[in-house]
Design a protein around this nucleic acid. Structure first.
Length: 569
RNA sequence: CGGGACGUAGCGCAGCUUGGUAGCGCACCAGUCUGGGGGACUGGUGGUCGCCGGUUCAAAUCCGGCCGUCCCGACCA
């Protein structure tokens, strides 16, 4: 490819609306352009990288025994109604109505369609197991798309679905996919970590997320410094020594205007951990009236909403309105667990604690000396708090640390949650009707483009690893000398003939412009030839982000090829 | 969905307070010089100032509504 023909408009300035590194650089280097919120065009360079990442994913999926298919983006409402998700999935599901008033949606994921496909053909256990995957565009109408390719509404995903006759076989495939993902992200050269995860909207039982470690990540993962325990904070558990107090009688103290934990603790001169923070939630579940639940944690703790929602079987969890609080006998700002006309759920760190301070359910007052076992005898206990840095690891007792991560892969053991309503059934070895058990496995392919950039860049631009780079080598001819141009062209053509992907910057631009663009685009090997070099019989070769050296013209091809082999390995 | 900011040429921005000729840098076009790290000079092209409405003799500027974009939050009672 000649740079003079390449559709890759580079920008000198950072676009004003780009925040994270990958978004800025992919825009500036001419890899992507925004169409509308959360929706992007891939330009030639961006597409080349996307295709290379796809190729790695495809190769490893095939190697793992999965088969590639392609399912439609438009999916009929009936299938979603059958799985029950037409009503449950919420506003992220973009619904459309066609000219016949027939309802459809744009696929955010493909469990329904793949179940429909498989159930039509599945007869016998002998056809199992089966793992089908696709690499395809997904659409999720995100509340807040952001950060370019990191959180788009339309994005490219590899999604795989496996079907099994029994749980043991599902567990085997889950491990197979776990190992496959580990190979994929390793091959992509990423610093990543597999973590225990919540199953979220997809549902199911066991699941792990694969996170690329990066400051710009939207997720927080908790990991042990001593063992391999790692979990999304939405899931993470931990152990902690909590301060204790003396048992005492309930007593009301005036705390006018003090509603926040810090204010109350400050006013009463106590450790915030000796306060009981009571939050009131409205729990929404499909086909049921809302429930109001009071949740207690230590004053210095946070409720982990995702954990709580899972525990309560909630489809949606919202903070209760002041009116809801009044209805259960509380006063907003001064809610305490005692005497509430609602279910009380307390964090396990409060179990057996005595002499604590809580809201009094009266304005401008708190109570001291509360003992949950005595004063709120019907309270339930569970792990509902958010894990904190410095807590002890639940498996080995080591220290828990936090990192930010970009979720690039997720594996689930779905079980029969979809196969049951979708009637994915077969005849087992005993001749009996059985429901298949399923796994599903996703990789955010377009998000990976951004994730790689988040880990591979410097002040000048992107630094692609060789096997993901849009081109392996860029030739830069300087000046108008015909001799320089001819020699450069020859080297460029020879390199292509040798099977490398080369681009030749033949533009009538000043040297600085060409250097900057090559660096911005992140092409790994740069070969520069000017009159000065030509007369010395040498070209200058620079490795992006690395060394620079002079190479005799006749050795350039071999040098480039050797450098490619070394770095592509 | 709540809060905040923003919307002026392809990109980055000024002008708006105090209404009166739409500007700057980069990019782009033509030319001359230049030619190893975003060059210089000369001359040009390009705008319904997001959209609709209102106030006014007059609106990029003031007012209202809408649309779009970005940031923060959406559990801390």
């Amino acid at each position: 490819m000649r740079m003079s023909n390449l559709f890759s408009p580079t920008l000198r300035d950072d676009p004003a609306d780009a925040e994270v590194v990958s978004h800025k650089l992919l825009l500036r280097a001419g890899f992507i352009r925004r169409v509308t919120s959360g929706v992007y065009n891939f330009l030639p360079l961006g597409l080349r990288v996307l295709r290379k990442i796809e190729a790695v994913v495809r190769e490893e999926m095939n190697r793992a025994g999965a088969q590639e298919i392609l399912m439609p983006m438009v999916q009929p409402a009936e299938l979603w109604k059958q799985s029950g998700r037409w009503d449950k999935y919420g506003r992220e599901l973009l619904r459309i109505t066609d000219r016949h008033d027939h309802e459809s949606c744009l696929g955010p994921t493909h469990e329904e369609v793949v179940c429909d496909l498989v159930r039509r053909e599945l007869r016998s256990y002998k056809q199992l197991p089966m793992n089908l995957y696709q690499i395809q565009a997904k659409f999720r109408d995100e509340v807040r798309p952001r950060f370019g390719l990191m959180r788009g509404r339309e994005f490219v995903m590899k999604d795989a679905y496996s079907f099994h006759a029994d749980e043991d076989d599902l567990a085997r495939e889950y491990q197979n996919m776990f190992d496959t993902y580990t190979r994929i992200f390793t091959r992509l050269g990423l610093k990543f970590r597999a973590v225990q995860a919540d199953t979220g909207a997809i549902g199911g039982r066991r699941s792990h997320e694969f996170h690329v470690l990066a400051e710009s990540g939207e997720d927080v993962i908790a990991h042990c410094s001593a063992c391999d325990y790692a979990a999304n904070v939405e899931m993470a558990t931990s152990c902690r020594k909590v301060p204790v107090s003396e048992g005492a009688d309930l007593e009301t103290v005036k705390t006018p205007g003090a509603t926040a934990v810090e204010d109350v603790a400050g006013l009463l001169h106590v450790d915030p951990a000796l306060l009981v923070k009571t939050l009131v939630y409205r729990v929404k579940r499909a086909d049921e009236a809302d429930e109001i639940v009071a949740v207690c944690v230590r004053g210095d703790d946070q409720v982990q909403a995702v954990k709580l929602a899972r525990l309560l079987g909630a489809d949606e969890l919202v903070m209760a309105a002041d009116e809801d609080i009044t209805n259960i006998g509380g006063v907003a700002g001064y809610v305490g667990p005692q005497g509430l006309n609602a279910r009380v759920l307390a964090d396990e760190t409060l179990k057996g604690a005595v002499g604590l301070i809580a809201g009094s359910n009266e304005k401008d007052a708190h109570v001291t000396g509360i003992d949950l076992a005595r004063d709120v005898s019907d309270a339930g206990y569970a792990d509902v708090r958010e894990c904190r840095e410095g807590d002890a690891c639940p498996t080995c007792g080591g220290g828990i640390g936090f990192s930010r991560g970009i979720e690039v892969g997720h594996v689930f053991e779905l079980g029969r949650q979809y196969a049951e309503p979708m009637e994915v059934v077969f005849q087992n070895a005993d001749g009996k009707r059985a429901v298949a058990t399923m796994g599903c496995y996703g990789i955010g392919v377009s998000r990976l483009v951004a994730a790689v950039v988040e880990q591979c860049y410097d002040d000048a631009g992107i630094i692609w690893p060789m096997h993901l780079a849009p081109f392996h080598v860029v030739f830069i001819s300087l000046g108008k000398s015909e001799q320089v141009i001819n020699v450069c062209k020859q080297m460029y053509e020879d390199t292509q003939a040798a099977g490398l992907e080369a681009v030749w910057d033949d533009r009538n631009e000043r040297p600085g412009v060409k250097f900057r663009d090559a660096e911005l685009m992140g092409i790994p090997i740069r070969v520069v030839l000017g009159e000065r070099g030509l007369s010395a019989g040498k070209a200058e070769i620079t490795i992006r982000g690395g060394e620079k050296l002079e190479v005799p013209l006749e050795d350039v091809l071999n040098f480039v090829r050797a450098e490619f082999d070394r770095r592509a390995a």
